[in-house]
Simulated assay, not measured.
Amino acid sequence: MRLWVSLLLAAISTATAGATVKSLLFPSETSTSYVDLSPLKSLTLSAFTLCMRVATEVQVGSPVWKVLKVVSLSRLSFYLSGDGVYFSVPELGALETHVCFTWDSQSGATAVYLDGRKSLTKIYKKVHVVRAGGKVLLGQDPDNFLGDFDAQQSFVGEMYDVNLWDSALSPSEIRDLASGRQVQRANVIDWATVQVQSHGEVQSATANKQ
């Protein structure tokens, strides 16, 4: 089971307008439950910050971007292409945790934050660029470009407040985010306005847009 936010390059994203998703519940392991998010701009990225709030009780490995994987509840890994970079962290659990990853291509600096607390910095994929095109999936780890999901690699739990910026936010901005303070709006995925399409058993709480 994995906690995936998966980025598929050169695919087409579909979306459902008219509602703001407040939270997403993935109730069980399946190969059919996932969510599409529609990015606000091209996914050409030379730096980014990915944040979300997550709760899960699964005790074996989990996904949140093919970029982000929970190998175990106390080990997070981060993938752009090829080998990933790993961080040992306090265990995730049923209590909500604010999780962020930051990465900057110019320096390769990569870090994970849990509830505003920063890990050590690791150097990863210096001068790499995430290419344009594609879509963002929540809840599954696609084994190839077209899908082929594996139930044992699906996310089980709740996630919301998923935001993606095309820059590496500062530690103070991420601390503010974790505590619910206002910072610059996410400019690639903005949870307050994002359009989504749910598949399979995913349940969501929604409210009409203003």
Results as ranks from 00 to 15, higher is better:
A19E: 00
S105V: 11
Q197D: 03
V127H: 13
L92N: 01
L177C: 06
E158N: 00
L73V: 12
S74N: 14
Y124W: 04
V162C: 09
W165P: 12
S81Q: 02
T44G: 04
S154M: 04
T102W: 02
F48A: 02
N208P: 06
P63L: 14
L120C: 07
E201L: 10
M52H: 06
Q140W: 06
K135Q: 08
A47I: 12
L50F: 06
A111Y: 03
L120S: 14
Q153Y: 09
I12E: 09
L95K: 13
L114H: 07
L24G: 03
E29D: 02
Y79L: 11
V130T: 12
T56Y: 03
F101W: 15
F78K: 02
K135R: 13
L68Y: 15
E91H: 07
R181H: 14
E96C: 00
I174T: 08
G180E: 14
G200A: 12
L95V: 15
A11Y: 02
S74V: 00
S42F: 03
F78W: 02
E57H: 03
Q203D: 06
E91Q: 06
A192C: 06
P90Q: 10
L92E: 01
F87N: 00
K122M: 13
I12Q: 05
E57T: 13
E57D: 12
R181L: 14
G200K: 05
L114R: 09
Q152A: 13
W191F: 09
Y79Q: 13
Y124G: 01
I174L: 15
V5H: 02
L37Q: 12
F26S: 10
G116K: 05
S154Y: 10
Y79P: 00
L73E: 00
E96V: 08
Q197K: 11
L3A: 08
K135S: 02
A15Y: 07
F149L: 12
S31E: 15
L114S: 12
V162A: 10
S88G: 02
Y160P: 00
K118L: 01
K122D: 00
L164S: 14
V71M: 13
K135P: 00
S81M: 04
S72N: 09
R185V: 06
D104G: 08
L138E: 06
A19F: 03
D83E: 04
Q195N: 08
V60A: 11
V127G: 14
K66P: 01
G108A: 09
C100V: 14
R175G: 14
A186V: 05
S72W: 00
L3V: 14
V89R: 02
Q203Y: 10
W4D: 08
A47C: 11
M1L: 08
S77I: 07
P171T: 13
G61F: 01
T20M: 05
D190Q: 12
S179K: 12
S179C: 01
S107F: 13
S77L: 05
V58T: 11
L120G: 09
S119W: 01
A132R: 05
F149K: 04
S119V: 01
Y86D: 11
Q153E: 12
A47D: 11
S119G: 07
L73W: 00
L138G: 08
Q203M: 12
R117I: 15
W103M: 13
T102G: 11
L50M: 12
A205D: 15
Q195K: 15
S42H: 02
S23W: 04
V60M: 12
V64E: 13
A205R: 10
D115W: 05
L138T: 04
